[in-house]
Design a protein around this nucleic acid. Sequence first.
DNA 1: ACTTGATTACACCGATCTGTGTAATTAGTG
DNA 2: CACTAATTACACAGATCGGTGTAATCAAGT
Lengths: 188, 188
Amino acid sequence: MRERILETADLLFYQRGIRAVGVDTIAAEIGISKRTLYNHFPSKDELIAAYLAGRFTKAPASDKPPVEQILGTFDRLERGFASKGFRGCPFVNAVAELGPEDQSVRKIAVAFKESRRLWFRDLLKQLGVTDAEGLSTQLTLLVDGSIAQDLVRNDPSMARAAKEAAKVLLANAGVKVDEQKSSRAAPK
Amino acid sequence: MRERILETADLLFYQRGIRAVGVDTIAAEIGISKRTLYNHFPSKDELIAAYLAGRFTKAPASDKPPVEQILGTFDRLERGFASKGFRGCPFVNAVAELGPEDQSVRKIAVAFKESRRLWFRDLLKQLGVTDAEGLSTQLTLLVDGSIAQDLVRNDPSMARAAKEAAKVLLANAGVKVDEQKSSRAAPK
DNA sequence: ACTTGATTACACCGATCTGTGTAATTAGTG
DNA sequence: CACTAATTACACAGATCGGTGTAATCAAGT
């Protein structure tokens, strides 16, 4: 039950915005009474917190080469953009509409952004990049930039543009970037 | 009067969010009656539209070298981030909290993003950059990425990170990027 | 002094919001 | 069957929302 409530709240919060969705709407969507919802979550704020916590997905461990993992991020982004339900980064959206004064929201948003940066950073260290800290930050800028741009433009190709920029930044840091798909398809 | 209303609405909408601020709040902040506000704006939607229209600032014409204009963008961003009232991109925030279904909001947001991209693109063309279209898009990713990151992290240095990445992308496109301030201070 | 238009106070509307209280109903378990 | 726990329907509270109606007041211009 708690699960049902949470996944419905997730869908509606993300799709229409947190402030735009009332608890009545969520309960009605599931077909339960409002009382039941409040039996599982003492307040809407707690439901919001649970929603954001549920969005905090760890980056999947992978045995692929670091470069592929990094660049693959942008491929996944592009698929995400092209999918029907995409509506930007839930954390950025939450901070935008709830305000930075809401410390609990801001905290989890910062934690999420930082976790992704650290994921980039560790991969870059594996590649022997000197300034892994700086470059990982720059990569997150490309990620969040493409998300914001796609949110307003609805143009999934923003992910490809970000990927191209990422390749340049990686190459500039001394990382060998091979587009293995095309080079393997046409090695001449 | 209309001006007073608009600038107060701008301040409150931007600072606390559009949905979070009621017309009563705006009127009370100025010290006028709600009736007066509705004499100047027929609905809150029109006030929102006027607010966003007022945020649509054209990039200032400048006679400085194109490279300085491009990189100067990130310096201005950093100053903006460090200023007290900064709360992210008003257009992205509006789309985030009002939803992409609100076509009038989305339209002006797209127009703003595109105008900035075209400003970059024309400067890049002046520099003889071959793929001015692609590179200008990438630069906007860095801009919006740093804005989003600063919004959640409250870290103005994101603008510097974006600037460093922009330098790499420019250099990769064959643009000479000199840090004139430091080189002029210590030419040795 | 007279007129015109803007602004005022203030009550009010219907809708919606988060959250609660309560008593009946349902379902599972021993 | 009996006990328990969850869920139900439903009314309701108090606040806030966008928006309107009205009559009084105020200021400026001729």
